[in-house]
Amino acid sequence: MKIAIIDDEPYSREEMKHLLGSYPWAEVVGEASSAEKGLEIILTKEPDVLFLDIEMPGMSGVDLAEALQNMKHKPEIVFATAYPDYALKAFRVEAVDYLLKPFEEDQLAQTMERLKSLVKVGPRENPSLGKLAVHDEDKIVFVKPEDILYIFREERETFICTEKKKYTCRLPIKELEAKLSTYPFFRVHKSYLVQLPFVEELIPWGSGVYQLKVHGADEAIPVSRNYVKELRERLEL
């Protein structure tokens, strides 16, 4: 998902870029300090999504959004502003969401899930057979992503766990999360990535902390409190 950030405040652009760095399937392809410069990025980079401030010198964010309405492939728009008074105008130009500064990670996570359902992420132009290369002692084997229960990182090694066996992989979790973005994996901890259909239980374990029971796995998996709310939303009907 290609994203452009248009905001006249450098700190706000940096904050948004930092927060978006948590989503490996999203890429910031450009940023601008005004709507006029943002229009150049839209025409040259063709982003899928705009994170757009409203109050800017010259053309406002709402003016830019209105100007884009007749584009054949117009980007989805998320207004990111310090002013709550423009919400009605924002939705008149079919904005996906309206985020208030300072940005909250939980709200951004909900926005990103909404965008993911609207913007087609992939498939790649030259898709592979869709198997993951892993190490099994002295040989390389290929595992189907749908067979992976969970993935975790320990020290400098990544482990790929299936119901039958545990393999090792040289890639860090962030890269694996990007490779597996079209499968229902979810980051529950900085060191753990779980395939949601295999989750059987969410067990309280201390103050705001949980553990997961995954089908076919003996060990319990830790869930960081930052991920609990979104995890429950993803798991529940």
Rank of each mutant, 00 (worst) to 15 (best):
L20R: 06
L52S: 02
V29K: 00
D147P: 04
V141T: 09
E27Q: 11
I221S: 02
P75W: 02
F79R: 01
D8I: 00
F79Q: 06
E94W: 04
S191R: 07
F159R: 13
E55D: 08
K229H: 12
E155D: 14
R13M: 15
A133Y: 01
E200Y: 04
Y23D: 11
E104F: 07
D97S: 07
L50D: 09
F198C: 06
F159S: 12
E94G: 00
L64W: 01
G58C: 04
L52H: 01
F152A: 00
G61I: 02
I148R: 05
D48H: 10
R234Y: 06
A26G: 14
E55V: 06
P47L: 11
I221N: 01
E113P: 02
E105G: 05
I140V: 15
K139E: 14
K144S: 07
R153D: 07
K166P: 01
A95M: 02
P145Y: 08
I148E: 05
Y227V: 00
Y210H: 14
N70I: 02
A35I: 02
I42A: 08
T44R: 03
A80P: 03
P127A: 03
E36N: 06
L100I: 12
E155A: 13
E236V: 00
N226P: 01
Y150V: 04
P222K: 06
E125C: 11
I6C: 03
Y23W: 11
S191Q: 12
R232T: 08
S33L: 05
E36C: 00
R234D: 09
Q69C: 07
L180A: 08
K174P: 04
E104W: 03
L202D: 11
K174E: 14
E157H: 09
Q69V: 08
F142C: 05
L202M: 13
M56T: 09
S117Q: 11
S207G: 01
H215R: 13
K174D: 15
V228K: 06
H135N: 10
S117W: 01
L237N: 12
P102W: 08
A67G: 08
M56C: 12
E36K: 11
G206W: 05
L88V: 15
S181V: 14
R234A: 12
E155I: 07
Q195E: 13
S12T: 04
A87F: 00
F198V: 04
I77E: 14
